[in-house]
Simulated assay, not measured.
Amino acid sequence: MRKIHVITQKELVDSHLICGCTAVVIDVFLATSTITALIESQYTEVFAVKDASIALDQANTLQTPCLLMGESNGKSIDQFIYPDPTLIEHPVGKQSAVICSTNGTVAIQKAQFAKRLYASSLVNGDRVSEDIVLKGDDSSVVLICSGNAGRFSIEDFVGAGQLIDHLLTQGTFTLSDAATSARESYQQARAKHFINLLTTETADLLSQTGYEHTIHWVLSNIENLKAVPIYQHGRFVAAQ
Results as ranks from 00 to 15, higher is better:
residue 94 K to H: 15
residue 189 A to D: 02
residue 132 I to D: 02
residue 21 C to M: 11
residue 29 F to V: 03
residue 151 R to V: 00
residue 176 S to K: 01
residue 96 S to D: 14
residue 142 V to G: 01
residue 48 A to N: 06
residue 31 A to L: 06
residue 87 L to Y: 06
residue 164 I to A: 06
residue 194 F to R: 00
residue 239 A to Q: 09
residue 74 G to L: 06
residue 206 L to S: 00
residue 207 S to L: 07
residue 162 Q to D: 06
residue 235 R to P: 01
residue 136 G to D: 08
residue 17 L to N: 07
residue 177 D to R: 03
residue 240 Q to Y: 09
residue 64 T to W: 10
residue 127 R to L: 02
residue 189 A to K: 02
residue 95 Q to F: 15
residue 63 Q to I: 08
residue 107 A to Q: 04
residue 174 T to S: 14
residue 189 A to E: 03
residue 48 A to K: 03
residue 56 L to Y: 13
residue 102 T to R: 13
residue 4 I to Y: 05
residue 17 L to M: 13
residue 43 Y to C: 04
residue 204 D to K: 09
residue 55 A to Y: 13
residue 147 G to K: 03
residue 166 H to N: 08
residue 208 Q to I: 02
residue 93 G to Y: 09
residue 74 G to D: 11
residue 225 L to K: 07
residue 224 N to Q: 14
residue 170 Q to L: 13
residue 190 R to H: 14
residue 82 Y to N: 15
residue 166 H to P: 01
residue 102 T to P: 10
residue 64 T to P: 04
residue 209 T to M: 09
residue 142 V to I: 08
residue 27 D to Q: 05
residue 215 I to S: 00
residue 47 F to R: 04
residue 192 K to V: 07
residue 18 I to A: 08
residue 39 I to M: 03
residue 216 H to Y: 06
residue 51 D to W: 08
residue 6 V to T: 11
residue 118 Y to P: 11
residue 228 V to W: 09
residue 73 N to L: 13
residue 52 A to R: 11
residue 119 A to F: 15
residue 195 I to S: 13
residue 175 L to C: 01
residue 74 G to P: 11
residue 57 D to K: 15
residue 122 L to M: 04
residue 79 Q to C: 09
residue 230 I to T: 07
residue 120 S to Q: 04
residue 181 S to T: 05
residue 190 R to N: 14
residue 118 Y to K: 04
residue 109 Q to F: 08
residue 49 V to M: 06
residue 112 Q to W: 06
residue 45 E to R: 15
residue 100 C to K: 07
residue 98 V to L: 12
residue 30 L to M: 12
residue 203 A to P: 12
residue 77 I to W: 12
residue 226 K to N: 08
residue 3 K to G: 05
residue 34 T to Q: 02
residue 32 T to I: 10
residue 239 A to V: 05
residue 107 A to G: 12
residue 189 A to V: 03
residue 78 D to Y: 09
residue 228 V to A: 08
residue 5 H to G: 02
residue 94 K to P: 15
residue 235 R to W: 03
residue 86 T to S: 07
residue 235 R to Q: 07
residue 151 R to W: 00
residue 60 N to D: 11
residue 85 P to Y: 01
residue 206 L to H: 00
residue 101 S to L: 09
residue 214 T to P: 02
residue 12 L to V: 12
residue 166 H to T: 10
residue 193 H to S: 14
residue 158 V to R: 00
residue 58 Q to Y: 10
residue 51 D to R: 08
residue 189 A to C: 04
residue 95 Q to G: 11
residue 10 K to F: 08
residue 211 Y to F: 13
residue 197 L to I: 01
residue 89 E to V: 15
residue 149 A to H: 01
residue 235 R to K: 10
residue 132 I to R: 04
residue 130 E to F: 12
residue 52 A to C: 07
residue 79 Q to E: 09
residue 54 I to P: 05
residue 217 W to C: 00
residue 43 Y to K: 03
residue 107 A to D: 03
residue 185 S to E: 10
residue 55 A to Q: 07
residue 137 D to N: 11
residue 185 S to L: 13
residue 65 P to A: 10
residue 173 F to S: 06
residue 67 L to A: 12
residue 48 A to W: 01
residue 192 K to P: 04
residue 183 R to D: 02
residue 109 Q to D: 14
residue 49 V to H: 09
residue 169 T to D: 09
residue 53 S to V: 14
residue 9 Q to P: 03
residue 214 T to S: 08
residue 109 Q to T: 13
residue 88 I to C: 13
residue 96 S to R: 14
residue 88 I to Y: 11
residue 22 T to P: 04
residue 191 A to F: 10
residue 9 Q to H: 14
residue 112 Q to D: 09
residue 189 A to S: 14
residue 139 S to E: 01
residue 176 S to W: 02
residue 23 A to Y: 01
